Amino acid sequence: GATAVSEWTEYKTADGKTYYYNNRTEESTWEKPQELK
């Protein structure tokens, strides 16, 4: 299949934890999204 550009962006909180934000759905998660595995 075609490689889609991930909708997920990786961010870090002030205390250094990583989370992921989906630009399309406006969803955020602590877990690494399936698309990034």
Rank of each mutant, 00 (worst) to 15 (best):
T9P: 00
K12M: 11
T29V: 13
G16Y: 01
P33M: 02
E7Y: 08
E27P: 00
T29R: 11
N22T: 00
T25F: 02
N23D: 08
E10L: 05
D15K: 04
K37E: 14
W8H: 00
N23W: 15
Q34F: 12
K32T: 09
K37R: 13
T9E: 10
E31L: 09
V5I: 12
K32G: 03
E35I: 06
A4R: 05
E10I: 10
E27V: 08
E31A: 06
A14S: 11
E10Q: 08
N23Y: 12
W8Q: 01
K37G: 14
L36K: 04
T25Q: 01
Y11S: 04
L36V: 06
N23V: 12
W30Y: 11
Y11P: 00
P33E: 03
Y11E: 05
V5P: 12
T3N: 14
K12H: 10
Y19F: 12
G1Q: 14
Y20T: 00
T29N: 03
T25H: 01
E31Y: 08
K12R: 14
E7G: 09
T9D: 05
E10K: 05
D15G: 07
E10F: 04
E27Y: 04
T29K: 05
E31I: 12
E10T: 09
K37I: 15
E10P: 05
E7W: 07
T3Y: 05
Y21I: 06
T13K: 03
L36P: 04
P33H: 02
T3Q: 14
T13M: 06
E27S: 05
Q34H: 11
P33S: 01
T29E: 03
T25R: 02
G1F: 14
R24M: 10
A14N: 08
Y11H: 12
G16Q: 02
Y20S: 00
K37A: 13
Y11M: 15
A14F: 04
Q34V: 13
S28N: 06
A4H: 14
T25W: 03
D15F: 05
S6H: 10
W8G: 00
A4F: 09
A4K: 07
E10Y: 04
A4E: 13
T13G: 10
L36F: 12
Y11D: 01
Y20G: 00
L36N: 06
E31F: 09
Y19I: 09
R24K: 11
K32I: 11
S28G: 11
T13V: 03
S6N: 12
T18W: 05
N23S: 15
L36W: 10
K32H: 05
Q34S: 13
Y19P: 01
S28L: 15
E35N: 09
E27I: 07
A14P: 12
T3I: 13
Y21N: 02
E31D: 10
P33A: 02
E7V: 07
E7M: 06
T13Y: 03
A2I: 13
K37S: 15
E27A: 05
Y11T: 05
S28Q: 11
D15P: 00
A2R: 08
Y20H: 01
W30L: 07
E7Q: 07
K32W: 04
G16K: 00
Y21E: 03
Q34K: 09
T25P: 01
R24T: 10
W30N: 07
T3K: 07
S28Y: 15
T18D: 03
Y19V: 08
E27M: 08
E35V: 07
R24G: 05
E27Q: 10
A4D: 13
N22D: 01
E27G: 03
N22K: 01
Y20E: 00
Y21T: 04
A2C: 15
T29Y: 07
Y11N: 04
E7A: 07
E7L: 06
G1V: 14
T18F: 10
Q34D: 15
T3G: 13
Q34E: 15
W30S: 09
T25S: 04
N22W: 02
N23I: 13
K32A: 06
K32Q: 08
K17A: 06
A14T: 12
E7N: 07
A14I: 11
Y20W: 15
W8N: 00
G16D: 04
V5W: 12
N22L: 01
K12F: 08
A14K: 12
Q34W: 14
L36Y: 13
T25L: 03
P33I: 02
K17S: 05
T3V: 12
T13Q: 04
G1T: 14
T3H: 13
L36D: 08
L36Q: 05
E10S: 05
D15A: 07
V5Y: 13
K32R: 11
A4L: 12
T13H: 03
D15S: 09
K32D: 04
Y19E: 03
G16A: 01
Y20D: 00
T25Y: 02
Y21K: 09
R24N: 08
T18A: 06
S6Q: 10
S6P: 12
Y19H: 04
Y21P: 01
K37Y: 15
R24D: 05
T18Y: 09
S28A: 11
W30M: 08
Y19G: 04
A2L: 14
K32N: 05
D15N: 08
K17M: 07
N22S: 03
Y21R: 05
T18P: 05
T9I: 13
W8V: 01
T13R: 03
W30D: 07
G16M: 02
T3D: 13
T18M: 05
W8R: 01
N22P: 00
Q34M: 12
Y21L: 03
A4I: 14
S6T: 11
W8L: 01
Y11V: 14
W30K: 04
K37N: 14
T29G: 03
T25M: 03
Q34A: 15
E7P: 07
E31G: 04
T3A: 13
S6D: 11
T9F: 10
E31N: 07
G1W: 11
V5T: 12
G16V: 00
L36A: 05
A14Q: 10
Q34R: 08
K37L: 15
T29L: 08
K17D: 06
K12P: 02
Y19C: 15
T3E: 12
T9A: 10
E10H: 03
A14Y: 03
G16H: 03
L36M: 10
Y20N: 00
Q34I: 12
K17N: 06
E10V: 11
K37F: 14
R24Y: 11
K37P: 10
P33V: 02
E31M: 07
S6R: 10
T9V: 15
R24V: 14
G1S: 13
P33W: 02
L36G: 06
K12T: 12
T18E: 04
W30T: 10
G1I: 14
W8S: 00
A2W: 11
E31V: 11
P33R: 01
R24F: 14
E35D: 11
K37H: 14
V5R: 08
E26C: 15
W8M: 00
Y19A: 04
A14E: 10
V5G: 12
Y11Q: 09
A14W: 08
P33T: 02
Q34P: 15
S28W: 15
W30I: 07
N23A: 14
Y19S: 01
T3F: 09
G1D: 12
W30E: 07
K17F: 07
T9L: 09
A2N: 13
N22V: 01
V5H: 12
R24I: 15
N23L: 10
V5F: 13
G16F: 01
Y21W: 08
T25I: 03
E35P: 06
T3M: 13
K37M: 15
P33D: 02
T18K: 06
